[in-house]
Design a protein around this nucleic acid. Structure first.
Lengths: 222, 222
DNA sequence: GTCAGTTAAAAAATCGATTATTATGTATAA
DNA sequence: TTATACATAATAATCGATTTTTTAACTGAC
């Protein structure tokens, strides 16, 4: 029998990890905030052990700071760290995109088109909520997926989560960002044309514009 | 009173994390091995909770694989992953070294000389044990320390740990690696001369030679 | 009023035991 | 034999309670 048809049992620990990760990236905790473990336990309806295991993982991942004998806190935000993250995205995603264009096959092309389409549909519906966020990161993941380096992908993922802590500051995406959304389509175009030079240039520009958005939000945040 | 003079109390969790990290990097577990939590508990004389928290952190860090409802196992080794890790080291450490040479001040120069000297002393005593390993990673950390990017340093650290899983396979460093050790000195030279171009070239060569060593060990390992 | 020292409350870390899941072994039927 | 269902053992995950440490509140001396 196909084991994949059986319901996939996940642990409480992995579920709360994913929930907390989303909430941290989505800005539902204040930067620098100290996490009250008992409150979290109640709020998310989980036991202490799975919760602590999730917090430990998040700390190792970089979405929490763990302090000796005094629990966990949300990392603070700073202009210099935002610059760092954006610069690293420029380097790593540019590199990954170039490689993906070299190695990606026609299945990748299809997935790219599909991911871009799904994202655009979400755009049009103007609901830039959690759904858009998911499709957006899936799109960017797809762009670089066939780069050939597991570790590169891992680092990029991590940087995206960090970057989004800045980009998603403040109220929920009220601004229209026509330019950025339009670039998603262009990125696919250049990828299909296998024009890695132009593709990287556009990726650089895309990240730079995203950076501008994130920076603005960070500055308006204070 | 200066609080730094008080003894630093660390948690059982952070201690066992560091111990396990060293043992995983040092190859005291077989690749692919399933970790018997009860056995670990006994062997390291720790309770279940701190142990599990450490294992969770190590999984998030990439030194363990966590499988749904079936505990933790040591990641397997593969030629393709070794290549990936070495390539990423080339890119990231090269980048970081260049930046460090641009930003590093005279304090850095002093620390570089010190770190290189300590490493050389350990070399001469021919005891390439754990002590040499510590000095060696400290030396490499120092080389890139003032690169200006916290995230870059973080990724490099992670890659080093992964790389060492291959480099340190098999018996404890019986081979004499005159060339590699000599390059450490040359790297410092070029850094002091602020010759970032030549420095990066040498760093590339150094990593490539390290890769050859690791590859050989990996192949002899089977 | 301020500050060191003390005590009480809160929180973090850990422990011991329980529950849930997977892996193993065995008997039975095809 | 081979496969399948069932029972059993082993292990992972989680819970509830305890211990340890930190933080906050309090006290009294200067």
């Amino acid at each position: 029998m196909n084991q994949h048809l059986q319901p996939v049992i996940s642990t409480a620990s992995s579920r709360i990890y994913e929930t907390l990760r989303r909430d941290l990236v989505g800005g539902r905790f204040a930067a620098g905030e100290k996490l009250a473990i008992n409150a979290l336990k109640e709020h998310y309806h989980v036991g202490l052990s799975p919760l602590r295991e999730a917090l430990n993982k998040l700390a190792a991942y970089g979405l929490l700071i763990q302090e000796n004998q005094r629990g966990f806190r949300v990392p603070t935000l700073s202009r210099s760290e935002l610059d760092d993250i954006a610069n690293m995205r420029l380097e790593l995603e540019g590199m990954a995109f170039e490689r993906a264009i070299q190695h990606g096959d026609d299945i990748w092309e299809a997935e790219l088109l599909a991911a871009a389409h799904r994202l655009k549909r979400a755009d049009l519906s103007l609901e830039k909520g959690e759904e858009w966020e998911v499709l957006h990161s899936q799109f960017h993941r797809t762009l670089v997926a066939p780069c050939g380096s597991v570790w590169l992908l891992r680092f990029i993922e991590q940087l995206h989560d960090q970057f989004d802590r800045y980009r998603r500051l403040g109220p929920k995406m009220p601004t229209v960002r026509q330019t950025l959304d339009g670039q998603h389509h262009e990125l696919v175009e250049l990828a299909l044309q296998r024009d890695s030079k132009a593709a990287r240039a556009l990726m650089d520009d895309h990240i730079h514009k995203s950076y501008q958005v994130a920076l603005k939000r960070y500055q308006e945040h204070a």
